[in-house]
Design a protein around this nucleic acid. Structure first.
Length: 199
DNA sequence: GACCAGGCACATC
DNA sequence: GATGTGCATGGT
């Protein structure tokens, strides 16, 4: 598997950028999210204050390429509102909460579900939380390690039981699963030559 | 033109 | 508790 190498899989310069990307990438190809992130960067709107200053019409236009833009705008706003009302707009303080508390607070934001919350925990807050996504479940199910239809929590529990709690490992492991999934583990009808079959 | 992409909330049974 | 649906753009 050396072929895949380190992924540097979540390309973001700041924790805030991770958070915005995590929301924008919901059920969306990252290439679409990149366009949105670039536009926000140009508008200097990739900080809590910068984003608040951006008129909502311009924000909508900026994130349009990432799809579901009306819903995602509401989700980003919901996060900013929570950060403002509950943490005085202090992102650093928010991200310093104990892992369990931080996860609960994220999940309480409408539009932030388990995968988005865990992505923020791992990639923005640096907590050893294993992120589950569609590829992960598909790969594990197809190779018989998990049942089809396994819940998020069950899949996460599987990895957390079998791997040491190590942030760089979780980062790389998830990235590799996505890399393999993208290339080989397509939805059932288009599943093709998986290199793991021989293992 | 169909299919898919680094989900989530909500309605309905 | 399980299943179905809306949300939307852009690449293959």
């Amino acid at each position: 598997m050396a072929h895949f190498g380190p992924r540097h899989w979540w390309p973001a310069e700041t924790p805030f950028e991770v958070i915005i990307g995590a929301i924008l990438t919901q059920n969306t190809a990252w290439s679409n999210v990149e366009k949105a992130i670039d536009r926000l960067k140009k508008a200097q709107a990739l900080t809590p204050d910068g984003l608040r200053r951006l008129p909502s019409a311009e924000f909508l236009e900026a994130i349009r390429p990432s799809g579901y833009y009306n819903i995602k705008a509401a989700r980003v706003k919901a996060f900013l509102d929570m950060l403002s009302t509950r943490y005085g707009n202090d992102l650093e303080r928010f991200l310093s909460l104990p892992t369990h508390t931080l996860r609960e607070e994220l999940l309480a934001v409408p539009g932030i579900g388990p995968e988005t919350a865990d992505s923020i925990l791992l990639y923005a807050a640096g907590r050893p939380v294993f992120v589950i996504d569609a590829y992960t479940v598909r790969i594990m199910a197809r190779h018989g390690y998990l049942a089809e239809g396994t819940t998020y929590g069950e899949a996460q529990g599987f990895f957390m039981r079998h791997l040491p709690r190590d942030v760089p490992l979780f980062n790389e492991y998830h990235a590799l699963l996505v890399a393999v999934g993208k290339q080989y583990c397509r939805p059932a009808p288009r599943c093709r030559g998986c290199p793991l079959e021989s293992l």
